[in-house]
Design a protein around this nucleic acid. Sequence first.
DNA 1: TTGAAAGCGCTACCAA
DNA 2: TTGGTAGCGCTTTCAA
Lengths: 352, 352
Amino acid sequence: MATMQDVARRAGVSLSTVSYALSGTRSVSAATRDRVAAAMAELGYTPNAMARGLASRRSRVLALVYPAAERGLGGTVAEFVSAAADTARENGHHLVLWPFRTNQADEVRDLVLQGMADGVLVMEVTLDDPRVATLRDAGVPFTMIGRTRDVGGLPSVDVDFERTTREAVDHLVGLGHRRIAFLNHSEATATEGYAPTFRAEEGFAAAMRSHGLEPLTRRVDESPQAGREALADVLADQPGTTALVTMNEIATFGVLAELQHRGVGVPEQMSVLAIVTSPGVADMSNPPLTTMHAPGAELGRLAVLNLLSQVSGEGSPAAGALIGCTLEPGQSVGPARDAAPASGAAQSPPRP
Amino acid sequence: MATMQDVARRAGVSLSTVSYALSGTRSVSAATRDRVAAAMAELGYTPNAMARGLASRRSRVLALVYPAAERGLGGTVAEFVSAAADTARENGHHLVLWPFRTNQADEVRDLVLQGMADGVLVMEVTLDDPRVATLRDAGVPFTMIGRTRDVGGLPSVDVDFERTTREAVDHLVGLGHRRIAFLNHSEATATEGYAPTFRAEEGFAAAMRSHGLEPLTRRVDESPQAGREALADVLADQPGTTALVTMNEIATFGVLAELQHRGVGVPEQMSVLAIVTSPGVADMSNPPLTTMHAPGAELGRLAVLNLLSQVSGEGSPAAGALIGCTLEPGQSVGPARDAAPASGAAQSPPRP
DNA sequence: TTGAAAGCGCTACCAA
DNA sequence: TTGGTAGCGCTTTCAA
């Protein structure tokens, strides 16, 4: 392997000039720069990341910690990772996914303390996430994707669940729907402190009440079968239901299958609005789903920029950013079935 | 940050003794070892990974390259990653996931040439994978998960598709099934050279023919809707079909929904055997699926051991390992519907 | 069983 | 605009 010293000799310049030509840290004449570049090409020079890291005390690696082994990695996370990796690269960094389990807080901290990474993006943050406390106490630069119960000014980016559920409800109410049910993530996610389950549920309830409507929520296991059962459950509890908001992709498949099985037309007799979805799910069903697409890419970009601003010590990172989902029209949402014929749909009183 | 020199002073020994005490590379008296350990604890010493990497010319990082941004990361890959990470850790290494796209072969190579990683695990290998050629030519240690068209003695681990499909067919034939259809991955995966699509298809055909049966295969898009359509298609083409082998999880959901919709009992009238599945899918349906579980964990372990043997230069790594799937009984496979009533199930002649 | 010291290949400061 | 050089914190050989 050719070293920087080899390049310097070949180009007839000093080692430091090669270093500066490579990093652009100080100006180098065009002529010199060309000769250095030529020497590098001729020798097939490849910089040594360890040496650079040791000398500069920066690895130029950002660690994304995500419990991939526990959760898999869906479309939304994939969009996040993709955008985060691109943003990191544009800023001269590598974005690397470190498959640590949620209970490996110390290992995550040590990554940075040992200099393998300059900072951490923490995904799947729970309401009381042990990793966050550990990183904060160790003074390790990090940005949360999601929020703990008590955000306390810590840097974070997250889906704006309040806004997303409100827009979902507003959209449906605007179409004349009054009896709307929310099919949430599972009870298991709630038990383990998965924040979106709570934030979306609260947001949905608040939005419904702001319209004078009663929220009906069900927590549903992540399986098609559970989706079918949840639909049956909802229709038994609230027979007049004309619209569903779902935040559970796999269960939504079951819901659609069960609706078809029962001969309930979508969207003629039942509207289905899938929120916080990943790309591609809309087209996995017939009719294509109307969705509110999670802002994975935007979150990834913001999270990396936030972390870089901490790592570079430049500027004060925004404490927290909340991004809403984007409504993407499909064919699974339409006017309420009794809204068109009746004179005043929005006036129809709730049943006792 | 305390350095090794600080620890040495505090323990009253030389720097090199601290290094040896830490690495165990040469014997250190118990007394000395204890004093070094105490000094480390008192100072809160954390070793510097960059310095160690520079001096030893080894990063102790294994890079797993996987196009997470393009594919997401399902249960099988999650099991693989988990086992690979554990095996790496047991051997003093980190396993990190580097989100490179399939066309970023040079970037993957540079990872190792720059010393950020010691070797590469290449996932989602296609029949003609550009990354494999690049890594081979650069002399970078790597192990494929999957196989190119021409394996040529390159280190690899893979699912044994030939064996898995044969066992699947044997199992069904043993239950009296004669008309068996295979629902494969999509045409799109075939177009991009995704090897499992071909290997499974060929294996299924060979297994069927070895029983004197005619293979019927359909390539199905990865969506529930496509699964429903594929079932309709198969039943139209081959009305007497009594069993399905599927290698397409999402489509399988649609198949089950459509079967229920048509009132076709599972497994009384139709057996469904899902092969190369990830954990959890079996329980996502009712009745629970009978599956052949992909050996993700075993592949992860073997892949890391193979790569480590290359990196350490010790022993010759096994060129290739093929692991079959494990049959996991569920309730979606049963005797052929016309086998039970008839006198000799296995003897029932194929219809003309 | 231990110590001394020569690097590993860079960055970045101090001079010129 | 360029050169010289002192580290960065460790591993590992050579000696004792």
